[in-house]
Design a protein around this nucleic acid. Sequence first.
DNA 1: TACTGGATTCACT
DNA 2: GTGAATCCAGTAA
Length: 164
Amino acid sequence: MKHLEKSFFKQDTVEVAKQLVGKILQVDNIKTRIIEVEAYKQDKASHAYKRTPRSELMYTTYGHVYVYLVYGMYYCLNFTTDTKPGAVLIRAVDYPNCNGPGKLCKTLNITKKDNGVPIGDRFKLFDDNYKPKIIASERIGIKEDKHLKWRFIDKNTIDKKYIK
DNA sequence: TACTGGATTCACT
DNA sequence: GTGAATCCAGTAA
């Protein structure tokens, strides 16, 4: 079991997203495997599209936690990367009630208070040499624009369980 | 100061 | 497949 160093995040957002699938995420004393992620760079679908106080983290850090509230009720967990701006959204992990970005944060008690903390504190990442079967490397169009997102899923785990 | 809409989820139909 | 819940960041004035 190898600790992922901060330098892991010092590479392209999409590359980090792809490599994050199958890694072990530890929050407090809960260890679970990441099974679905999404990469956001500077496209219109991302908060990073414009530099604002909220998106500042994505412009200035890598290897940090970025948490925001969507729809007034759900938090989303992201890790910032070296692509500035850029971040990887953690969409699902292999743990009960964690098959969605909002549910994941609710279950693991992740809120805005975690925004901006460096990885290695409350959030830790490990590599146990598990090889995920990454099936989805999609480009997803949003509404009338052709925004690009990159979503990566571990088919090994998806087949067994959830995911919408 | 006021308005708008979203990196979602769930309960309905 | 559709719509409601719910609040705050971003924007415009």
